[in-house]
């Protein structure tokens, strides 16, 4: 487990994560500053950004002091020199989730943030191109939300033999 980098915002709660060197919990306000501190500390690459909808898991186990919200944005950063991985879990809000975009720091998150918007409806402010990416343009709803149905069509076998 590594320490938080210099000039991290105050009040960031850290813990030991599974298969990563540091797991941080940030609020919406702390998030951009924290990522900037990590970038200055040598984390060159934002390897992954994704959203999670915890609609049915509002009482999930979190370290003390973290206020759980319905949506989380999970960011994985990579330090290619020291070979360290850091995971940041941002509590992104419940009703109208919106967090700052990391595009200024890591231009490579552009597509991943668009995907999180498309699938969960999480907005990323200051993102240059906040559009859908995977679903058709006129689609309604955000499919990976827990209150969105799977869209399963009941299967009916035609000319199937009757029950034995």
């Amino acid at each position: 487990m590594i320490a938080l980098p210099a000039r991290s915002p105050e009040g960031v709660i850290t813990s030991e994560g599974l298969a990563c060197d540091l797991l941080c919990f940030a609020t919406i306000e702390q998030y951009p500053k924290l990522v900037r501190a990590f970038k200055n500390a040598g984390f060159q690459m934002a390897i992954d950004v994704c959203g999670v909808d915890y609609l049915e898991q509002m009482d999930r186990p979190l370290p003390e002091g973290v206020v759980a919200t319905r949506f989380e944005v999970v960011v994985n950063l990579l330090n290619m020199v020291k070979k360290e991985r850091v995971r940041i879990r941002v509590q992104a809000g419940t009703d109208n989730p919106e967090v700052a975009s990391l595009f200024d720091l890591y231009p490579g998150v552009e597509a991943m943030e668009r995907e999180a918007y498309d699938m969960f409806g999480i907005l990323f402010s200051k993102h240059p191109d906040m559009t859908r990416i995977l679903m058709p343009e006129d689609w309604e709803g955000h499919p990976l939300r827990k209150d969105y149905g799977v869209g399963r069509v009941p299967v009916q076998f035609k000319e199937a033999p009757g029950p034995r």
């Binding site: 679903m135 499919p143 969105y148 149905g149 799977v150 869209g151 399963r152 069509v153 299967v155």
Partner: peptide, 10 residues
């Protein structure tokens, strides 16, 4: 032919 194992919205 039938959607296969992906019986979902997409």
């Amino acid at each position: 032919s039938t959607g296969g194992m992906f019986n979902n919205y997409a």
